[in-house]
Design a protein around this nucleic acid. Sequence first.
DNA 1: CATGGGATTGACT
DNA 2: GTCAATCCCATGC
Length: 202
Amino acid sequence: MAGRVVIDEAFFARGVVQVARELIGCVVRHDGAAGRIVETEAYHHDEPASHSFVGRTARTATLFGPPGIAYVYRSYGIHALLNAVCEDEATGAAVLIRALQPLDGLAAMRARRGMQDVEALCSGPGKLTQALAVELEHNGTSLLDGPVRIEPPPAGTSAPELVAGPRIGITKATDLPWRFSQAGSRYVSRPWPARTARGRAA
DNA sequence: CATGGGATTGACT
DNA sequence: GTCAATCCCATGC
């Protein structure tokens, strides 16, 4: 009971950074496959790296929907990226799911990815959507009771130790430490630098 | 209506 | 380390 996370609309309605931290350890499930979230990034309306920064358009309309729905978009013409919409409908905030530790449906994941290495099946935002067969058609569907679901951490799993750092692959607002991952996980999209990304060691 | 860029990945030097 | 692949859509004329 104590410490047990409940995934409902109120969970996603809170601050996007808080949600990004608490999603580490939760489970994403779709079409016979599931994985534990080991890496996320937060995106908020008020910073230029976010798609919603330009305001509500045909592309970003989903970001201005209710909390707890999926925002799926195509990146570089090839990859579908999965986000969870957070806060309220006026905000346009979302958490990008960047990496999973495969749990169930390993055979299905390997078939969809066309490779075997379990550490590379879901170690990136474009990889995990391919492994779970998440497509653009899931844009706007509910993550609470839709085809693609986010579930609480399995009972008995302890709270993961978190690492925070700057976000990856963006050209704006790169100073915000809004990337979170499970410390020491071998399933993240990119390893963390030996010295902290904050320049601590200099 | 034409153009340019992107929250990436995989293959190659 | 470098670079191409390839779709959607925001922006500008």
